[in-house]
Design a protein around this nucleic acid. Structure first.
Ligand SMILES: [Mn+2]
Ligand SMILES: [Mn+2]
Ligand SMILES: [Mn+2]
Ligand SMILES: [Mn+2]
Lengths: 239, 239
DNA sequence: TCTTATTTTTAGCCATGGCTAATTCAGTGC
DNA sequence: GCACTGAATTAGCCATGGCTAAAAATAAGA
C-alpha cells in the first residue's frame, strides 16, 4: 500500500475507536475530529476508493479488514510511543499523549521495533490499554468501571481513560493506576462518592472519576509466605 | 510564527546548506531537492511572503535572519536526533539519517530538550557536525580534508561527510570517525591513494574517500605520564 | 400519510505543494 | 547592438484536505 497521509491515518484511527457493532455516523466522526461533516463525507469517499472503508451514502461507515489493520498499526505506534515517552524519557501524562499523537504517523518500522525491544515487548501502555501486536491482534479490555463496582468487591485497576490529562495526574496521585488493587468500601447514593481502600488507606473519590477507572475482579490466592496476593484475570481474547 | 510545514522547513534547510557568501540559484535548489525549478520559484515566493527569505526574480535567494533561525532549529533537531538514534537506540548510519530526516519536523521542543539532556548536551553529532545551540548559534566546522593533508602532518578527524551511508560504514571500519588521530604517511601522485597511520597501524585509502574526511591539525602535548596525546584545536567561532 | 427536523451530501471555494509546457529574461559571443 | 543560450518565471493543471452554504435524503412527529 502506498504511503498513507497523516489525515487518512487519523480518520481510520477515529473510525476504529468509534465503531462497535454498528456503522459509524458521519456527524459522529466530525464531532470527534473537530472538522465539518462535509470534510468527513469527502474523506470517506476517498477512503472508499482506497478500499480502507466500507461506506454507502447516508448509511454510515465501517473499516474494511485492510482499514482495520492500518488503524491497529497506528494505535500500536501510539501506545508503544506513550510507553517509551513515559517510561524511558520521563514525559508527563499530558505531554506524552500529545507527542505520541504526532509521532505515531512518522516513525519507521525500525523505530517501532527498537522501542518495543528496549521496553521489553510490553503488552499494555501506561493507561493500561492493550498494545496491538505486530501482526495486528489486540487483547480485550475490561468493561467494568470502579463506579459500577459493589461495596466489598476486590478489584484490580485494568486501565484508565486517556482523555483528560488532569484526571490522569489526579489518578496517579490517588494511586489509581493500572495494577493497583482496590476494594470498594462504601457507595453514597444519588450518584454520590465512593469510599475505597487501596494501599492500606481509605480514600473518597467522586462517581465521575470512578467511571473513568476500568477494573477487573481480583483473584485471591495464598502465596508461599502465607500472605494474600491478588491480581486481575488477564484474558487475552483477541477480537 | 504560525506552524511551518515540512516542505517549508526542508526548503529553508536546503538554502541554508547551499548558501555561502552569495545568493543561491533556483536550479541549484531544484537539483538538490529533486523537484522542478517551477516548484522552487513557487515556494520562494511563498517564503518571501513569510519573510523567511530575501528573494528577487532572477537574482537568487538568501535566508533572512528569521529564516536562518528556523533552518538552525531544524538542523538542531536533525543532529540531536541522529546522536540519540545512534548512541541510545543503536541505529545504523543509514537508518539514522533517514529517520532523523523525517522526525526533525515532528518533535516538540519538549522532546528536543529531553534528548539533549539524556545525551549530556552534546556539541557535535555522530558525523562530527556541530549541533546548533537552542539560541541559534553554531560552531565553525573544519575545512581541511584528509586528501589535502601533507605527509608527516598529524591531524584529528573533525567530521565526515554525511551523504553516503555506505561510505560511513567503511569509515567506521577503517577507524576514521571523529576524534580519531591520523598521520599521513605517504601520498601517491596522480590523485593516487594515501597511506595513513592510525591506531598504531598503517592503512591505504583512496583519494576520493580522503576528500570526505575533514580534519584539523593535531595539537601535541606531553601528558603527566609522559605519553604524547593529541587533540584538535576546537575553535568555536559562531558564524 | 404528510410535514418537519435532523443528518448527510453536493457545490463551490481556498491554500499547499507538486507537475509540464510555454514564455521571458539575462548574459555571452559576434 | 543583436542573436543565441541557459536559467528562471509564468501559465495552467492536479491531488489533498480543509471550509461554508445550499440541497437532498432520511427519520420522526402529528
Ligand atoms: Mn493516548
Ligand atoms: Mn494522530
Ligand atoms: Mn544527517
Ligand atoms: Mn527533512
Amino acid at each position: 500500500m502506498r504511503m498513507l497521509s497523516q489525515a487518512v491515518e487519523d480518520y481510520l484511527k477515529t473510525i476504529y475507536k468509534l465503531q462497535g457493532e454498528d456503522r459509524v455516523a458521519t456527524n459522529h466522526i466530525a464531532a470527534v475530529m473537530e472538522v465539518s461533516s462535509a470534510s468527513v463525507t469527502n474523506m470517506l469517499k476517498r477512503l472508499t476508493r482506497l478500499e480502507l472503508v466500507d461506506y454507502a451514502s447516508y448509511q454510515g461507515v465501517r473499516l474494511t479488514e485492510a482499514g482495520t489493520q492500518v488503524a491497529l498499526e497506528i494505535i500500536r505506534h501510539h501506545r508503544l510511543l506513550e510507553t517509551y515517552l513515559k517510561e524511558v524519557m520521563g514525559f508527563s501524562w499530558s505531554e506524552m499523549h500529545e507527542e505520541a499523537e504526532r509521532l505515531e504517523h512518522h516513525i519507521s518500522e525500525e523505530f517501532e521495533e527498537r522501542i518495543d525491544e528496549m521496553l521489553g515487548y510490553p503488552t499494555h501502555d501506561p493507561h493500561g490499554h492493550p498494545i496491538p501486536t505486530k501482526d495486528g491482534k489486540i487483547a480485550a479490555s475490561a468493561t467494568q468501571t470502579l463506579a459500577e463496582t459493589e461495596p466489598g468487591e476486590h478489584v484490580v485497576v485494568h486501565h484508565v481513560s486517556d482523555g483528560d490529562s488532569d484526571l490522569l495526574d489526579y489518578l496517579e496521585g490517588a494511586g489509581l493506576l493500572p495494577q493497583s488493587k482496590v476494594q470498594v468500601v462504601e457507595k453514597e447514593p444519588f450518584n454520590g462518592p465512593l469510599k475505597v481502600a487501596l494501599g492500606g488507606k481509605e480514600r473518597v473519590i467522586g462517581r465521575e472519576v470512578a467511571a473513568q477507572v476500568f477494573v477487573r475482579p481480583a483473584i485471591h490466592r495464598t502465596t508461599a509466605s502465607g500472605t494474600v496476593a491478588s491480581s486481575s484475570a488477564e484474558r487475552t481474547e483477541t477480537k
